Amino acid sequence: MAGERFPVSIDGRDFELSNLDKLMYPAAGFTKGEVIDYYTRIAPVMLPHLAGRAVTRIRYPNGVDGVHFFEKNKPGGTPSWVRLETLPVPGSTKSRETIDFVVVDDLPTLVWLANLAALELHTPQWRIGQDPDLLVVDLDPGAPAGLRECSAVAVLMRDRLASDGVAAYPKTSGKKGMQLCCPISGTQDSEFVSRYAKRVAEELATMVPGSITAKMAKAVRPGKVFIDWSQNAAAKTTVTPYSLRAQEVPTASTPLTWDEVEAVATGAEEPRHYRASDVLERVEEHGDLLEDLLTPGPALPG
């Protein structure tokens, strides 16, 4: 029934779930109850990537076809047991200089956010109080380029980073592109990391100017893959591994193997995005393909 509420207790935290039959992805018949089920089941591999990071939510109270909004500050009615961190807002032009961010360190908080129709969760490249421990490169294709072209650029980027001793781990964005995530030392600030990422992106764009651009201007991006090095700025966030995306169907940001990326890049396999059910099956088979991101990596060269 519409508006029906269900009390739950998860790991000793008591709260209510509501409107479990509401369609979040109408074209796929995917309900809020199924969103909550997905996040509950994916939690063992997703929570380590959320832990200690201030989370930005994109909420779709009436499903992916309805109005949505970004939310950084704690929502009204936040339970007392939810971890909050009051942090400055990098680059903010508003008078409010700090925000009470939610930190998702446990299953109750993840389920509580899912019940608020926070379909997408985005996190920064740093843990609270630390310098970035991740370098993230977003590969954004300009039509008619797509996921196949992104995969080819990902392989080039992987090999270039490897020459500096930096390991890259691929995942789909869950939308049209993909990201490479690299564990780094956490000893260099975001400006240093951004400069390094920009330098590498410009180097590859110079090598393959017909297929790659490191420029943000939309006019130069059709048919090319934009290597978005700016994801490493202090004010930026990236969709968290395993997060759902607000597409027609419930796709998720999905970790990949390099064999899969190379197969798509060479045309041996068709490019695809993965639905929630696919991602759960992949975790059963592979575990967390991004587990190595949880261990600090090398310092970047100057």
Score class of each variant (00 low, 15 high):
E203I: 14
D133M: 09
A197S: 10
M178F: 01
Q188G: 06
G186E: 05
R158C: 07
K176N: 15
D133C: 11
A167G: 08
L134H: 05
L135A: 08
S151K: 11
T240N: 10
I227G: 00
K171C: 06
M157C: 05
A217G: 12
E202R: 08
D131W: 12
Q188I: 07
A154W: 04
K198P: 01
G177H: 02
D131S: 11
R160G: 06
M157A: 14
K198V: 04
P250R: 06
M157G: 00
A233P: 01
V136K: 02
G177Y: 00
T172F: 10
S163I: 02
A235H: 14
I212Q: 01
T187V: 14
L156W: 14
D133W: 08
A217E: 14
Q130E: 15
C150G: 05
R127M: 13
S151A: 15
Y242S: 07
P141W: 00
D133T: 07
V137H: 12
V249L: 15
P170F: 02
L134S: 02
P144E: 11
M178I: 00
L161D: 00
S230E: 09
S190R: 11
W229R: 05
W126D: 11
C150Y: 09
L134A: 07
K171G: 06
T123V: 15
P132T: 08
